[in-house]
Design a protein around this nucleic acid. Structure first.
Lengths: 117, 117
DNA sequence: CTACTTGTACTACCATCGTAGTACAACCCA
DNA sequence: TGGGTTGTACTACGATGGTAGTACAAGTAG
């Protein structure tokens, strides 16, 4: 998996689990770039994309911060859209493999016991 | 989505839904290549991969056929492995987006009513 | 054996994508 | 205003992946 995708995920996950809180500042693009031994642009792209998604806010000369917007009603809607989109893809693939929705449900329910999220 | 992936899916789907039955012959690589305006190699790759998966059988000078092996116990196991792998990926992505297993279950259950597969 | 069919190996081209390098623009602060 | 932050635009390189072209191998059928 490409670096930028890993990083994107990590940040999203950190926010989703509360390890990064609203208003909190993220590392500078250069800081993080050095730390991860990656080009600054790679980090910048991630920050920019997450800003387009409304998850981050960035101010030049200052830094990048976790936005508050993803608590709005708007964002709940978008979030749900992402979920339905994800499920759509998932169903399509499973369908192509000949699995029914029930098969998937069974699988997921057996996971529910093991991985409490 | 790349051509080869589309084709792979289409064939898998056709078999899963019974539109292609066991023992039935598929079009020649060249036939299908012409029909789809695609290089013969592309079709060949798909056939070869599906053979490695055990769902096709190919005999030189004769053609390619739907294998009977995917009714074996072995294949049920492999099939299930694919399913768990798919669910794994799915859960990982959803998790990164901050969705719980229950969220996914809710989504899927609401789909179950709409798309009877 | 020969002609014809089938699938296959090998190669090369082209597009796309991910990343790095460098230079630039906006902004803060003393 | 000037030096030091911050993020950003542009470019280019390397790798990968997908497809096509051509030539080959294995098998069938007359």
């Amino acid at each position: 998996m490409p670096l930028y995708a890993q990083l994107t995920r990590a940040i999203q996950f950190a926010i989703a689990t509360g390890r990064l809180r609203i208003g909190e500042q993220l590392p500078t693009v250069r800081q993080l770039a050095v730390e991860l031994r990656v080009n600054a642009n790679t980090v910048a792209k991630v920050y920019a994309e997450l800003e387009r998604s409304g998850i981050l806010e960035t101010r030049r000369g200052v830094g990048t911060f976790v936005s508050a917007r993803h608590l709005d009603g708007n964002h709940h809607e978008e979030h749900d859209k992402h979920l339905t989109a994800l499920v759509d893809r998932f169903l399509e693939e499973a369908n192509a493999m000949g699995f029914s929705v029930d098969d998937l449900l069974d699988q997921l329910q057996s996971r529910r016991k093991k991985e409490p999220n």
